[in-house]
Simulated scan of single mutants.
Amino acid sequence: MSVSGETDYSQPAKTQWYDRKNYVFVEFCVEDSKDVDVTIEKFRLVFSCKSADNLELYNNIELYSKVEPNDSRHKRSDRSITLFMRKVDGKKAWPRLTKEKTKNAWLVVDFDNWRDWHDDDQQMIDLEHYSNMLKDLKDTGPPPTMDDLDDESLDSI
């Protein structure tokens, strides 16, 4: 055992994360996990468990920004442990999960679920603009009759 109480052979679990307006989602990719322990604090996330082959996994993550521990949850499945943590400041996007800018080999962005939520706002504005354009087009009156076109003029095309 090390001084901190962790076993010397513990390693971090492979972790994916993505950002939304009000929540940050974190997924620890551990199949058939046992002895799962999750602690969510205002600026820190601590995760530990044992894998199916009894390898001890441990992650201690200093978070990029403040979360609300009492409004954050986690769920264990056969394939992973998923957390959602409510951001205290939902108006700000998180460019990374960790406080430090260092790259961690065990931590990746979940691009399948990632969305730039500023784009969501722009998409809604664009959709509303497009809807208004269609409405304006609809109100222009009946379509032209095109009576001035004869069969001979179409043959020359």
Rank of each mutant, 00 (worst) to 15 (best):
D139Q: 12
K103E: 11
I81N: 02
L97D: 00
R73D: 05
V108K: 12
T82R: 13
W106Y: 12
L63N: 02
D148K: 15
P95C: 08
L127G: 08
K135N: 01
E62W: 12
I125M: 05
L137E: 07
E68N: 14
K91I: 09
Q122N: 07
D78S: 15
N59H: 02
R73C: 10
L97W: 03
E56Y: 08
Y130V: 05
N113R: 15
D139F: 07
D110M: 03
T98A: 03
W114F: 15
N60F: 05
K75D: 00
T145G: 05
V67T: 03
T98H: 02
T102D: 07
T140A: 08
I61S: 01
D116G: 10
L127I: 05
A52C: 11
L149I: 14
P95R: 09
L83K: 04
V67I: 06
T102Y: 10
P69G: 05
R96M: 09
L55T: 14
R76A: 11
N59P: 02
K99S: 13
M85E: 00
I61Q: 00
S80D: 06
V67E: 00
Y130N: 05
Y130M: 07
K99I: 00
R115K: 13
W106I: 01
D110W: 00
K50W: 00
I81Y: 02
F84M: 10
P95K: 11
M124K: 15
S51D: 12
I81V: 14
D139K: 09
G141T: 07
D120C: 02
D119Y: 08
Y64S: 03
L83M: 12
N132H: 11
G90V: 03
G90H: 05
K91P: 04
T98Q: 00
L55C: 07
V46F: 12
D136E: 12
D78N: 15
R79K: 14
P142Q: 08
N70G: 09
W114N: 04
P69F: 01
P143G: 04
P69T: 04
T98G: 01
F111Q: 14
Y64K: 02
I125N: 03
S77I: 10
E56V: 07
K101N: 09
W117V: 01
T102E: 06
D53H: 02
D89L: 08
N60E: 09
S72V: 11
T140L: 15
K75M: 06
K99W: 11
D139I: 04
E62P: 04
N104I: 10
D121S: 08
